[in-house]
Nucleic acid binder design. Structure first.
Lengths: 184, 184
DNA sequence: TCGCGAGATGAACGATCGTTAAAGTACCAC
DNA sequence: GTGGTACTTTAACGATCGTTCATCTCGCGA
């Protein structure tokens, strides 16, 4: 990916997060980069491709990170702590992508949406598999629901208002772990 | 509000939740009700008005419910439990509105969006005020952030996958309360 | 029967916007 | 300098869609 393409993705991500995919025009993105709108078509096949690029990229990064965390961990509870810390750090570092991922996924066409949803499901499955070791008495789909709820908690970071985000990190980790400990 | 207007709101809510506000046309909504698209303009001034009606309505219902719950409660912890139960019940009963509220708020114009956000802030404030009694040592904006995180947990209900929603209710309440107990 | 008003309809307007097309610029190898 | 490649621009096309308009239907009170 060229330098210019990276800039386009970065600016588009900011605009998508602020205004939404539908309310951001190709010309807006071009203007933010410093080129004309149609110039984007030299680097990407279309507007959807921008969205797909960022969504697939973050989904893959998250999945890879989760798998690495689990591999490196010494025990089940250690793995849970690492997964929570990873998600919290990601949500605090890239709130724009969190917003876009939760809001604009449906602007992808069927094939691309399916790809993103698959990655998402695999990510949830990494969490769920870890939890089956710490909560062997619970059904798997129940654990999956709990995982989604905890990720919902962590991903609310972008809406947390005017607070110093960094100072929230320990609290969010504590809340997420407490919620996971309350699964029944 | 007439009978027909209620049907329009109800069908529009379903369509908005499924496809998103931008991907739902006036003709789609009309077809779902059994009338033509432009017929909607007899009942509402425009497409945005539909969205505003449902968003303001649920925000007000939630705020009223929260205030009543707090009034009826005997203690601070009792109030927290009631607030959590209320939000969980609402999220399970009306997942469509939860989705729309979290995804399509930005399709409102400035004035309407401000009104909804005000109601939202007042709702958070009800929670926060209750929490200041149970957590007197914590700053108010920190409590507000925690409240938003917990609501994010509860509102993840629509994405919980194919599980019997009703059976999740006690677990979600337990997770939310545990998360709130972990505030620091 | 007449007329009025609520409600609905199909056609048309107008704006927005993604996308394509054709032409232009700058740099670089030869 | 000549040709080609990488990248960009402006103009235009075409589709979608919210909204408006003129017209129609139908029930109902006088």
């Amino acid at each position: 990916m060229s330098e210019r393409a990276d800039r386009i993705i970065a600016e588009a991500a900011q605009l998508f997060a602020q205004r939404g995919f539908g309310a951001t025009s190709i010309d807006d993105i071009g203007a933010a980069v410093g080129i004309s709108g149609p110039a984007i078509y030299w680097h990407f096949v279309g507007k959807q491709a921008l969205l797909a690029a960022m969504l697939i990229d973050i989904s893959e990064r998250l999945l890879d990170g989760a798998r690495s965390s689990v591999e490196e961990s010494a025990s089940g509870v250690d793995a849970v702590v690492r997964l929570v810390a990873l998600q919290v750090a990601f949500a605090l570092r890239e709130p724009d992508l969190i917003v876009i991922h939760g809001r604009d996924l449906h602007h992808l066409d069927a094939a691309q949406a399916q790809k993103v949803r698959l990655l998402q499901r695999q990510y949830i499955d990494v969490w769920t598999t870890v939890l089956t070791s710490t909560h062997p008495d619970l059904a798997r789909n129940r654990l999956g629901a709990a995982v989604r709820a905890v990720i919902g908690l962590i991903n609310s970071t972008p809406n947390l208002g005017r607070v110093d985000r960094k100072s929230l990190e320990p609290m969010l980790v504590a809340m997420a772990l407490a919620a996971l400990a309350a699964i029944s």
